[in-house]
Design a protein around this nucleic acid. Sequence first.
DNA 1: CCGCGGGCCTGAGAGC
DNA 2: TGCTCTCAGGCCCGCG
Length: 292
Amino acid sequence: MPELPEVETVRRGLVPVMEGARFRKVEARRPDLRWPLPRDFAKRLERQTVTGLGRRAKYLLADLSSGEVLVMHLGMSGSFRVEQNGAGRTPGAYYHERSKANAHDHIVFHMSSGATVIFNDPRRFGFMKLIPRIALAEDPLMRAIGPEPLGNEFDAALLADACAGKKTSLKAALSDQHVVAGLGNIYVCEALHRARLSPKRRASTIAGRSGAPNERAAALVDGIQAVLRDAIEAGGSSLRDHRRTDGELGLFQHNFRVYDREGAACPRRDGGKIRRIVQGGRSTFYCPVCQR
DNA sequence: CCGCGGGCCTGAGAGC
DNA sequence: TGCTCTCAGGCCCGCG
């Protein structure tokens, strides 16, 4: 699923049942995710308390009382769902309900809050990893990630600086997690439309010769932040796999202005028809009239 | 540094 | 009903 708004939606759904709770029992039913889980994965989690559940880029970060951080990534098709125990439900009961519907439930957390948290990922591009807190910032996963687009420090100057001198396209630059964290194919397309910038435009053209931001950089920052805020408010976008942790669908797919709308009229009603091109092997959607 | 292609996986949908 | 083909929200690697 998941770009920043979907991961943030998942985080918010997990906070009430995971923060302050202990892992009572952990089932690593399928350890061969994108990277294999360590053998002692369950052991290192059990009896630990989650002291905080945060997010960096598209990673969920659960701080543990042991001093380790549980890093979780949803890949393309990962989701979490929360089931409340009680109503006759026991940790054991879950195990006997395997069927086609939950064939891809790879990891199950039984929390002391009484909730069961289930990680499901058909394509298995997602993963979990345990990293000592003090080593997190230097870990290859985290080290080179760019600024959080909804963080205080993110602004036109920062974005222009990251793009200065880049000959690559804006689409490719914004998709690069080192430039700005958390955007993927959908929200890059949507942000560029909001900023009225062509996905084919050279990334360096949002900076002046000195590297200073121009009005395009400012519009892009506004477009990125606006689309992310709107999408989070809608609970993310549910195309195939994304679900909120309560099983409900996100709603932002109904508010796409260009993504997956090839041939439709541009919502700006400027006479443009949404066009689909391929950049870096992935679909890009944009309006050739208002995006220059 | 850059763009491109391929790989990792499974499932949905289209076309026949 | 079933086959084959294409495509999908991420990310990494190697090539030229």
